[in-house]
């Protein structure tokens, strides 16, 4: 009976240790959990069918960037981690502009709040105002829980090559760009 109890305790300890290990891994690596397999091509079609106003109110079709290496970042001013990754996106936009890389932000908030934030942060890549409907579009791309930030990377051929729920590290993007450019 004692040995059974010992084994039960050991199993419990192993499960707890594994839980702590997983949590520490994600936190230290600054990664987000996987959100499942890459979406079907039709999800990207929904993105390319989308037309949203830019910061000047001009209706802008996402398809205008078809054929580029497109990084679409869903974000919102109310999302703290979104604020963390945007500066690195601006840096990478400048660095890789000549290699046909295009960042586009799709914001899940109203035009006034998005424009204010974009001004304060000096976001110099295109930002489209999606209001809360932006989240529905992100769900079509695989953001099953409608949380932010959520980012997809689409190749020149229009196929989804990466998607990420949570902060997308510059190092990860550099690796992707190295393969795609």
């Amino acid at each position: 009976m004692t040995s059974i109890r010992t084994i039960a305790i050991l199993i419990g300890a192993a499960v707890l240790a594994l839980s702590a290990g997983y949590a520490t891994h994600w936190m230290l690596a600054g990664q987000s959990p996987p959100v499942g397999p890459v979406s079907e091509e039709s999800d990207v079609d929904a993105l390319f069918r989308t037309q949203l106003p830019d910061l000047n109110g001009l209706q802008t079709p996402v398809s205008r960037w078809r054929g580029k290496i497109l990084v679409v970042n869903f974000w919102a001013p109310w999302c703290a981690p979104c604020r963390e990754e945007i500066p690195s996106f601006m840096t990478l936009q400048h660095e890789f502009a000549a290699k046909d890389v295009q960042f586009v932000g799709i914001a899940a908030d109203n035009a006034e709040k998005v424009a204010k934030f974009a001004r304060e942060y000096g976001i110099d890549y295109p930002v489209l105002v999606g209001n809360m409907g932006a989240l529905d579009l992100s769900v079509k791309l695989g953001n099953t829980i409608s949380a932010l930030p959520f980012t997809v990377v689409i190749g020149r051929d229009g196929k989804l090559v990466h998607r990420q729920l949570g902060i997308l590290k510059a190092a990860t993007l550099r690796e992707l760009f190295a393969k795609l450019t």
Binding site: W26, M27, G30, S32, P33, A76, W78, C79, A80, P81, C82, A108, M132, L135, I145, S146, A147, L148, P149, L165, G166, I167
Partner: peptide
């Protein structure tokens, strides 16, 4: 209400 996860994502209101 509105909240976030420690892992680094936030939920809409």
């Amino acid at each position: 209400l509105q909240g976030c996860a420690d892992i680094g994502v936030c939920y809409p209101p």
